[in-house]
């Protein structure tokens, strides 16, 4: 459902994303792992059509993002880093607006708003102004916005960042619950998260793709089954005791 071919992005002097290729299909939950500044967000921004690649291409459901951006944007639900929202809007109005921007029919919007409010447990803040929400609720509103049109492809940039352990657990449960007929890509630098929710992991560092496989395979590379060690060995290139790449 998502295909990325030799994607690159250069910002002045740095290669934020350097010749990355991968594909992800229906039912997969693909984890994007990498240290801060690795190029995870930049890759996602190119798939969602927010920024143009310097080189290479991204395809969503077989359609090229650069050729038909409004079509591919319509197929994706996206939650960007830090979950930006319109603070002056009320939760319900904001979700309805998201439905309108997605050009859904009026009755579909109403049904969609009710569905995502239920799904993301927003009933208690439904009539609240967004600026008054806690971080956990902001995340969930952002998630709800990404799900309003029941997209085939879901792209989540650090969906659990800044949440407390219980909230993290809720978000992960929700993500697992959503998979099945969707293709989900999420980025994180929390290793347990990959183990817990992802069916596949990709590791990138300094813009380059360094690993593509299952979390279990990744873990088995360490004698003590320590994901931390494997991650450090792959992303830094140093040899770490007990890790066999």
């Amino acid at each position: 459902m998502i295909e990325v071919n030799h994607l690159s992005k250069r910002f002045e002097s740095i290669m934020a994303v350097d010749d990355i290729s991968f594909a992800a299909g229906k039912g997969e939950i693909l984890g994007f792992l990498g240290p801060n500044g690795a190029g995870k967000s930049t890759t996602m921004k190119m798939i969602t059509g927010f920024i143009l690649p310097s080189d290479g291409e991204a395809l969503v459901c077989g359609k090229k993002v650069q050729e038909v951006p409004t079509v591919t944007k319509g197929l994706i639900g996206y939650m960007s880093e830090n979950a930006p929202l319109y603070d002056d809007m009320y939760v319900e109005d904001f979700l309805r607006y998201a439905g309108e921007l997605r050009q859904m029919a009026a009755d579909k919007i109403e049904a969609g708003v009710n569905r995502v409010i239920d799904l993301c447990a927003l009933t208690s803040v439904r009539y609240q102004k967004i600026e008054t929400l806690s971080k956990g609720f902001r995340r969930r509103v952002s998630m709800a916005q990404a799900l309003i049109h029941d997209p085939e492809v879901l792209i989540l940039d650090e969906p659990t960042d800044g949440l407390d352990p219980n909230q993290k657990h809720e978000v992960r449960t929700l993500i697992r619950q959503l998979s099945g007929n969707k293709c989900i890509v999420l980025s994180t630098h929390i290793l347990e998260e990959v183990e817990e929710v992802c069916t596949r992991a990709i590791i990138i560092a300094k813009g380059k793709l360094l690993y593509d496989g299952t979390p279990a395979d990744l873990k088995s590379k360490s004698k003590q089954h320590k994901l931390d060690d494997v991650f450090r060995a792959i992303t830094t290139g140093e040899s770490v005791q007990g890790v066999n790449l």
């Binding site: 059509g49 927010f50 409004t70 079509v71 944007k73 319509g74 994706i76 929202l85 997605r102 916005q145």
Partner: peptide
């Protein structure tokens, strides 16, 4: 929010 808006169709 520009990112929210411009990743809509």
């Amino acid at each position: 929010t520009i990112e929210l808006l411009l990743t809509m169709p």
